[in-house]
């Protein structure tokens, strides 16, 4: 006896997507694309984007690992920054509508793709690598489990840019305020027991913009797809700055 293959129930969702092609458009505009999504399972916003791209092949966005590791598909989803690949459609859709815009504050290259140069420039300033001055030991530079634990909640950052591009201080001063992502990395190396450049790192942050432009509104914490807390890292650096002996 043959059984009918169950056909998935579908429902339509209207996606409103920020479109801009520098070779065609004077100005960006919002385009509505209606997609059909299954009702019996949840899909991610990135899957919804693929469905939209089937209809509109010129639609452009970055994506790579599609599982929240590479950090390519950061975008503004219904007003809140996040990674499209790990944001369930059921959470994102409001009143049957899904609005997607590029991450705020950075120049748009095309559609949902932004130029991350300003973001990377700020990261470069904090020298996000281990700096040592002592002679290389015979073996590795070791850490105790406790010292290693200090880096938890810091090393996990994937540099997607969701935090910095949701930060008003970064919007207004993207060249002077380092932004939550770079400052989290700064603390990651200040807190590292193996790093020997703490004083230089702190010196570089002691101006009114680099670090002190943070006013603790915690947009960064509320959007971080990895659940990290840049506000706390910034606070740790600040405490270190004001308590150190020169």
């Amino acid at each position: 006896m043959s059984q009918a293959i169950p056909v998935a129930q579908l429902k339509s969702v209207t996606m409103s997507i920020y479109r801009y092609d520098p070779t065609l458009d004077e100005k960006p505009y919002m385009q509505d694309i209606v997609i059909e999504v299954p009702t019996d399972k949840d899909i991610m916003v990135l899957d919804a984007l693929h469905l939209a791209k089937d209809q509109e092949p010129s639609l452009s966005y970055r994506r790579s690992c599609r599982e929240g590791v590479c950090g390519s598909d950061g975008m503004n989803i219904n007003g809140k920054n996040g990674l499209a690949c790990v944001t369930p459609l059921s959470e994102a859709v409001k009143r049957n509508k899904l609005t997607l815009r590029p991450m705020p504050g950075l120049p748009v290259v095309r559609d949902l793709i932004v130029d991350m140069k300003q973001f990377y420039d700020q990261l470069e300033k904090v020298k996000p690598y281990l700096i040592t001055k002592s002679d290389n030991p015979e073996t590795e530079r070791t850490q105790s489990p406790e010292e290693r634990e200090e880096l938890d909640g810091l090393y996990e950052c994937i540099l997607c840019g969701c935090c910095s591009t949701s930060c008003p201080s970064f919007w207004w001063n993207p060249d002077k305020f380092l932004g939550p992502a770079a400052l989290l990395q700064s603390w990651r190396f200040i807190a590292d027991s193996r790093d020997e450049a703490t004083e230089e790192r702190l010196d570089a942050l002691e101006d009114s913009f680099s670090l002190y432009r943070c006013h603790g509104i915690m947009n960064c914490v509320s959007v971080c797809p990895k659940g990290l807390n840049p506000t706390e890292a910034i606070s740790n650096i600040r405490n270190k700055l004001i308590t150190r002996e020169k």
Partner: peptide
């Protein structure tokens, strides 16, 4: 000159309670 658009329409960006409190 950089003529590229920037998405920074504050009316479309959600503002959590702490941000509202700060403003």
């Amino acid at each position: 000159k950089d003529n590229r658009p920037v998405n920074l329409n504050l009316l479309t960006i959600s503002l959590p309670i702490i941000g509202l409190s700060s403003i």
